[in-house]
Design a protein around this nucleic acid. Structure first.
Length: 581
RNA sequence: CGGGGUGUAGCUCAGCUUGGUAGAGCGCGUCGUUCGGGUCGACGAGGCCGUAGGUUCAAAUCCUAUCACCCCGACCA
């Protein structure tokens, strides 16, 4: 492609609406254009990258014996109602009404549609396992779209769904998809990802993994053991063994302190002059309709998933403030010694005999010298107080492998997620297959997603994806593999550049010829900004000795190459890059 | 949804407090100049000042409403 024939609107200045590096660079490099909040057009360069990523995904999906299908962008609201996901998605669901007054949802994903498709055509275990996939736009009415393409209301997603008669088959295909994901990201050159255990869902075990691109602006928090043998999303991350001691001596008389209006740990700590690790954070929940109290240390965060698991409840919600107050909870000033009979779940780090300050169970008051034995255990049945891991893991916690490893916390962007769904959708939608005994069995499913546009943004967001000059694309997904920069596009230089361009095209190289009548400096800056991996500079200076200059985007220095060898040399470098990536 | 901010040229912004018919830099066009990392100079095109009302002789500027976009927060008592 000749630059002059494309549309590559590079920007010298940073558009004011972009606050994160990937968004800024995607706009400056002319990859995308914002149409509305959270919706973007892909310009020629951006779309080329998208297509290259999709091509790789498609090849690897096909190699994993998955078959591609295409589904509507909208589906009748009823299909989401059958699985209850219209409620799960809530306001995040885009719903529109057609001329007949029927509600249609813009698909946030396609589990229902694909499960119906499967159910319509597959009736026998003999046809299993089957893996179907799609690469399509998905819609979510995000409460707050942000960070450019990282959290948008429309995005390109690869979703694969597998169908099985038994666990073993699901496990095997899950592993096959997992391996395909590694190959996809490796081949894209986006090879600095981390695989973490994620919320395990209905089946349990290690049934869910996320592929995370580490970067500071990421919305996901992950923890990795410094022994390198454990990594998990904070939502899922377990914590290694921790001791606890509820029975110890009190540190002093229970002392009430007036703390008007101080409902947060920060405020309370300030007014009482107590640091967060000596405060108890006490929260009230309803587990299947019963009151439940959860206690963690002031500097820790409750993990609702863990609490739910500890309680064994099927529905766990934070207490409604009005109703909890009516029941006797001094919301905002709750301490573990609540005046209401209920179960209390305590995190091990909070279940210690030490100095504690906590809510006084009385509005506008807290207490000092709370002691578990004296102030709670002596007054309730033993089985009312349960010590359990109910908090989010944090920097410095022991690894759940209990091998001396320490958890390190970092942030990242979720690029992909593989997940065992089990029979959730087949149950809800009544999809079964006949087994060998001619018994109808609910089909087991796995689902496997990749956010295509997130791959672009997350890569640019990561340390390897950019420098002061702009984007640094990996060879495999760069919009063009080579850019020919002409010092000036005329005379001998023009002839040489054109010849080289034709040669590279003939060799099957994705090449961009900068034939613009611009100063050399402008062309160099633009080539760096848009991140083309290889640059061949053609100018009078080199041509005097019949040479051109070859430079990698990632290296400081250029090498001089005989004009006749340039194309072959570039081809060799491209092959090399695609091999190692 | 709650709080905050911003809407003026393709982009980044000034002008608004103290109303008087619209500005700079970059970009764009022409000419010249320069020519290996965003040359320099001259001339020029380009804006119903987000939209709708209101106040006023007069509104980018003051008032009201509305829309859009951005940021922070939104069950850690």
């Amino acid at each position: 492609m000749r630059w002059s024939n494309s549309m590559i609107p590079t920007l010298r200045e940073v558009p004011s609406e972009a606050v994160v590096p990937s968004h800024q660079l995607m706009l400056r490099a002319g990859l995308i254009q914002q149409v509305a909040a959270g919706t973007y057009s892909y310009l020629p360069l951006g779309w080329r990258v998208m297509q290259k990523v999709m091509d790789i995904i498609r090849e690897e999906m096909n190699a994993a014996e998955a078959v591609e299908v295409f589904m509507p962008a909208m589906q009748p609201i009823e299909s989401l109602e059958r699985s209850g996901r219209n409620v799960d998605y809530g306001d995040n669901l885009f719903v529109l009404t057609d001329r007949h007054g029927r509600a249609q949802a813009l698909s946030p994903t396609h589990e229902e549609v694909i499960t119906d498709m499967f159910g319509a055509f597959v009736k026998s275990y003999k046809q299993l396992p089957l893996t179907l996939y799609q690469i399509q736009t998905k819609f979510r009415d995000e409460f707050r779209p942000r960070f450019g393409v990282l959290r948008s209301r429309e995005f390109m997603m690869k979703d694969a769904y597998s169908f099985h008669i038994d666990e073993g088959s699901l496990g095997a295909v899950y592993q096959r998809q997992y391996d395909a994901y590694c190959r996809i990201f490796d081949r894209c050159g986006v090879d600095n990802y981390v695989i973490v255990e994620a919320e395990s869902g209905p089946i349990g075990g290690s049934a869910s993994h996320e592929f995370i691109m580490p970067c500071e602006t990421g919305e996901d928090v992950i923890l990795q053991s410094d022994k390198g043998n454990y990594a998990a999303n904070v939502e899922k991350c377990e914590i290694g063994e921790r001791g606890h001691e509820l029975a110890g001596e009190a540190t002093g008389e229970l002392e009430q302190v007036h703390t008007p209006g101080c409902a947060t740990i920060e405020d309370v700590g300030k007014i009482m002059k107590v640091k967060a690790p000596h405060l108890l954070k006490t929260m009230v929940y309803e587990a299947d309709g019963s009151w439940v109290v959860a206690v963690v240390r002031g500097d820790h965060e409750l993990n609702e998933g863990k609490l739910k698991e500890a309680t064994g409840a099927s529905v766990l919600v934070m207490a409604d403030e009005a109703r909890a107050k009516e029941a006797g909870f001094a919301i905002g000033f709750v301490g573990p010694h609540v005046p209401v009979s209920c179960k209390t779940y305590v995190d091990p780090d909070a279940a210690q005999a030490q100095f504690w300050a906590c809510g006084a169970n009385e509005a506008d008051h807290h207490v000092k010298h709370f002691n578990w034995q004296r102030d709670l255990l002596d007054h309730v049945d033993d089985d009312c107080v349960i010590v359990a891991d109910i908090r989010n893991a944090a920097e410095g916690d022991p690894s759940p492998k209990n091998d001396g490893g320490v958890l390190r916390e970092s942030r990242g962007i979720e690029l992909g997620h593989v997940f065992k769904l089990g029979s959730k959708y087949s149950d809800a939608l009544g999809v079964t297959v006949l087994d060998e005994q001619q018994q109808a069995r609910p089909v087991l499913m796995g689902c496997y997603g990749i956010g295509v546009n997130r791959i672009l943004a997350a890569w640019i967001e990561s340390d390897h994806g950019r420098d002061e000059g702009g984007i640094i694309w990996p060879m495999a997904i760069a919009p063009y593999q080579v850019v020919i920069t002409t010092i000036k596009y005329e005379g001998e230089v023009q002839a040489a550049a054109d010849a080289l361009y034709d040669e590279l095209l003939a060799a099957g190289v994705d090449v961009l010829l900068d034939d613009r009548d611009e100063r050399a400096g402008v062309k160099f800056k633009d080539a760096d900004l848009i991140g083309i991996p290889l640059r061949i500079t053609v100018g009078d200076r080199g041509l005097k000795s019949d040479e051109v200059e070859l430079k990698a985007r990632t290296s400081e220095d250029a090498e001089m190459v005989a004009r006749g060898d340039a194309a072959a040399r570039a081809v060799a470098l491209i092959e090399e890059a695609l091999k190692t990536s």
